[in-house]
Design a protein around this nucleic acid. Structure first.
Length: 401
DNA sequence: GTCAATTCACATGAAAGAGACCACGGTCTAGTG
DNA sequence: CTAGACCGTGGTCTCTTTCATGTGAATTGACGA
């Protein structure tokens, strides 16, 4: 071991990195050219263009599954708009908000507060009546004549949480503004989202709609190739690697984000191996790693009761191969709580928690009716056995079992 | 055998409580000139 | 006289509990053939 670590670091330095510029593989990277989204890009641009003439553009609604380039095209367009506006000194203000981010914009109060903050108003995180925040915001934007464009990303999450009233307020605010004009761009992953909206909101919000179809494998492949060119050394990728990444991502509704992540993680794994090229095997490995990291990461950040619930499911799941039901899980959960001196929650709550885990995709829970024997959720751990064991170990450590 | 009623074991919704956090205005207190 | 400490009030947020209502098909039991 004399030359152990020192040698390792030296070798590490010697070895040329696979990546030349990893930034281009980060999920929030905005490339200069956008592949296979010309049509959408064009639509977005022409809908939003009037704001350069100081006219209020139509409200716009953008849907499509995750990783279909919605956020990308919208941010790209707004960036361009902003730079033109700046050059010509046009009164345009663009605000981008991701409604999914906790503690930023996931309640009405926080959303409006955040918007007001964008205009340089200090709003306390809590304590003020919501109306007050509204009026602060209102006064602030109406101070001067200008166009304001609010981009609400993942708007479906927000509405799911707090209802659509706030969107109604926002769209209506225009009628009362004397100087400024406000337009909203909503981005949603949920395609049938607008059907659940109040018709009034729906009609005013989606004056224009753009739908993003999923990428197919060929598109994904070209996107990946473009990114590879930007971010990796020549010959860093073995034959067929890109095709395989694209194929995997295409299998899941053409999610480009996932394809890129897969490629990046494969690259990291290859580098760690000391290989000079990403091989197909690295992709399989990457798929596992990503999955595993996601679950472990998720498990770690959860509150105790969530952990206890998940642990109960995994624990029962390893004992038994067939489906679990809410009742059983709850019984086991109560037992687990007792072990770690935790006051158990009611079954009502645990039922919700199970539902949340289902949404997160850690478990698979389907509501079924067993006829005379009632109605319940049929629960399966949705990941592989190895992963479950892994997660279980993490959980029992976290819980202090 | 057929068909509607029953029944189970929860799911799902709504409302409301508890405990934290915070702003704001009023009052009190101690230090200063 | 004034700055700062210290309430009380009123507001939001999150997590829960409580209470109420809904649900889908296996089972049951009445009915008719």
């Amino acid at each position: 071991m004399e030359k152990g670590l020192g040698q390792f670091f030296e070798d590490y330095l010697e070895q040329e990195s696979l990546f030349t510029n990893k930034e281009h593989l980060q999920p929030n990277f905005v490339p200069e050219t956008i592949t296979h989204r010309d049509e959408q890009l064009h639509s977005v641009a022409s809908i939003l263009a009037p704001c350069l003439r100081c006219q209020k553009p139509s409200n716009l609604f953008v849907y499509g599954k995750t990783g279909t380039g919605k956020t990308l095209t919208v941010t790209y367009t707004t960036q361009q708009l902003e730079s033109v506006a700046k050059k010509k000194n046009l009164p345009l203000k663009i605000i981008y908000l991701n409604c999914k981010l906790k503690k930023v914009a996931d309640t009405e109060y926080r959303l409006i507060a955040q918007l007001a903050r964008e205009f340089g108003k200090a709003i306390p995180p809590t304590g003020l009546p919501t109306d007050e925040v509204y009026s602060i915001f209102f006064k602030e934007i109406d101070k001067e004549k200008r166009i304001i464009l609010i981009v609400l990303d993942e708007i479906d999450v927000l509405v799911g949480k707090i209802g659509d009233e706030m969107l109604y307020n926002l769209t209506r605010i225009n009628a009362e503004l004397k100087n400024a004009q406000l337009s909203i761009v909503g981005i949603s992953n949920d395609v049938i989202f607008t059907e659940r909206l109040d018709p009034r909101v729906k009609s005013s919000l989606s004056e224009e709609e753009i739908i993003y179809p999923p990428y197919n494998a060929l598109h994904l492949q070209q996107i990946l190739e473009q990114r590879v060119k930007l971010s990796m050394r020549k010959n860093a990728v073995a034959e067929g690697v890109i095709a395989k990444c694209a194929a995997i991502a295409a299998r899941e509704h053409g999610d480009a984000r996932r394809a890129i992540e897969l490629l990046r993680v494969s690259g990291e794994l290859a580098e760690r191996d000391g290989s000079t090229q990403i091989a197909i095997a690295h992709i399989d490995q990457a798929e596992d790693t990503i999955e595993k990291d996601k679950v472990i990461e998720l498990v770690k950040g959860q509150p105790k009761h969530y952990q206890a619930t998940l642990f109960s499911i995994f624990d029962l799941g390893t004992q038994r191969k067939d489906a679990l039901f809410t009742g059983e899980v709850y019984e086991h959960y109560k037992y687990v709580c007792q072990q770690v001196a935790l006051r158990p929650l009611t079954q009502r709550r645990v039922s919700d928690i199970i539902g949340e885990f289902d949404v997160l995709g850690v478990i698979n829970a389907k509501v079924i009716s067993k006829g005379r024997f009632g109605r319940t959720r049929e629960i399966f751990p949705s990941t592989s056995q190895g992963l479950v064991d892994n997660a279980k170990a993490t959980l029992s450590e976290e819980l202090g079992l």
